[in-house]
Design a binder for these strands. Structure first.
Lengths: 335, 335
DNA sequence: CTGAAAGCGCTAACAA
DNA sequence: TTGTTAGCGCTTTCAG
């Protein structure tokens, strides 16, 4: 049944005018007779005419597409980020093309290539955890399209970025614990070479220092592995035992809580636990998790807005631009 | 710095051949001199030429885009579905345009319109829960592009669909409880007018019937509202109290478990609980939730494959095509 | 084997 | 105010 898509040419013929007239009528051009315009508009309406975006894009040499690369769509963090980014893009008439690197640097490179080939007008990238070599991104600098990094910035690359203030989040959480009277606060950190982990660790350390506490204990773990449980077991058994533990993220906190329960200690009383991120699971744990919330949705919005600004030729002087979004503590039952 | 994108014309000029020759060389056309071909290919390589997809699409009147409409990207279920669908699409050289209806029928309609305007070649739709009026979808039937429904089918619409076998999942779960010796099994169902909820309820009922149990209790609730807790409280206090409860989904199960704990009963012993979906939270509850897993990722793949098949002109006789994917019980601690 | 030319649907500079 | 024409980048007859 595939009825042929109707074009401005069809309209022109039926009305005995030229295609340019139709084009003008449709695009609200000033120099056109009111009567002709009406005729065109009403026929277009009647025929259910929809301009062919492929033609328009070719004509303008613009794809109106923004590429987004994230590690994993099924992680709540990223789907939230994308929801924010997409809202802004749509608002400005852009589509987003979402690609997943599945945390592989190699795939990441491929995707950049593919997206460039498909002529995206801008790129929003959440670098894979695995990625450390900034060198690979130098080629991006040579593309004419704007790039914005999200959630993780790449040092010395001079590319815009939006991240959350991990340092401040960890600092505030630690401070909260201290104010609650905890003297011995441990930190289950993330991998040592991940910048986000480093910042959180530093926030923790500086808070400890600020209040002159003598106890300080940091254990690096790779979350979602057994390392966390091993580390936590070690903490529970250490003497004196910490009164609180600040976790790299909510998953780490979950494992920590399991161990605490295993030793029949009470979470939120014998040992306070604070997570990071406010994943949905934070509300579904028992006890419900006190955690540092990152404004992920907003981060997506801000990043996309920044990208569009660069796209529309903001003054060079303001590029690259870095923004750090504040986090805040959500108080629940674990601390 | 925006260096102009290089085109086949550039290559043609530098090599003193015509654009058509370049085109042929690039597209591996048979009728071309080997030598010329080599020259073109190597120059293209050297110049880092990438064909402009906008031009190709216009030429072919094909967008190579598939539209996907889902209620909410941040729900794990849907992000998983999309991951499956996207994998297949990419594999076949298609992009996906992901849109969220945010569970609004109105937005849903708008999105269909927008996607049609943007010339997607096919549509994958997960209907919003709110949507009941199939009439609205009739217009889709008049589009020349193939449509596949996912997760929920619309009756009497003659459009292809892929869903999971809710009936069988609920039946198997109930049967499992019966085999474990439960005589009194209650069902916390979803909203009465949602097809998925109806099927699950029916699976429950039929299992009860098959084994000739005399106890049968169904309470309809709207999940993520207080209704669930109210209903569960009622069940816990009823005499005789049910020995097990089959929940409409994992969120319902979570609330049910909270209530059970509230009465100091032991989940998995005093009352067994089974959820539905296997959301990530299922593993993070205490106790870990026994639940009916739906093959969501696979559903996305199957649906996209079906869509592409229709797109590539499978025999009309095989369209529409309906598939029902089997679910399976994941045993954990709650039952 | 290669080139010229038309055309995909639309816009815009230039004429009338 | 309207029409003519060229062109966006590429493919594809149709000639040579």
């Amino acid at each position: 049944m595939a009825k042929k898509e109707i074009t401005i040419k069809d309209i022109a013929q039926q009305l005995n005018v030229s295609v340019s007239t139709v084009s003008r009528a449709l695009s609200n051009h000033p120099r056109i007779g009111l009567y002709t315009k009406e005729r065109v508009l009403s026929l277009a309406q009647k025929l259910n005419f929809r301009p062919n975006p492929m033609a328009i894009n070719l004509k303008n040499s613009k794809s109106r597409n923004i590429g987004i690369i994230i590690p994993e769509l099924t992680k709540h963090f990223y789907s939230q980020l994308i929801t924010g980014a997409e809202a802004i893009a749509t608002e400005h008439g852009y589509n987003v093309i979402i690609c997943q690197s599945h945390e592989s640097t190699h795939k990441e490179e491929k995707l950049i290539e593919v997206l460039l080939n498909s002529r995206v007008e801008g790129l929003l990238i959440c670098i894979a955890n695995e990625t450390v070599d900034t060198g690979r991104f130098l080629k991006i600098k040579n593309t004419p399209i704007p790039v914005v990094f999200c959630d993780r910035e790449m040092a010395n690359l001079n590319i815009s970025s939006v991240i959350t203030n991990d340092y401040q989040g960890a600092f505030a959480a630690t401070e909260y614990l201290i104010n609650k009277g905890c003297k011995r606060i441990a930190h289950l950190a993330g991998s040592e070479n991940i910048p986000n982990s480093q910042s959180r660790k530093q926030g923790y350390v500086d808070a400890i220092l600020k209040y002159g506490l003598s106890y300080q204990k940091i254990i690096y773990t790779h979350y979602l592995t057994h390392q966390v449980q091993v580390a936590m077991r070690q903490l529970v058994l250490s003497k004196p035992r910490p009164e609180a533990v600040l976790c790299y993220n909510d998953y780490v906190a979950f494992d920590a809580i399991e161990i605490i329960k295993e030793y029949e200690l009470e979470v939120g009383k014998d040992i306070l636990v604070i997570g990071f991120a406010d994943e949905p699971i934070a509300q579904y744990m028992t006890p419900k998790l006190t955690t540092v919330k990152q404004p992920v949705w907003e981060m997506g919005k801000v990043a996309m807005q920044m990208l569009l600004d660069e796209l529309k030729g903001k003054k060079e002087s303001e590029v690259p631009c870095s923004r750090k979004l504040e986090t805040y503590l959500i108080l629940r039952d674990s601390a």
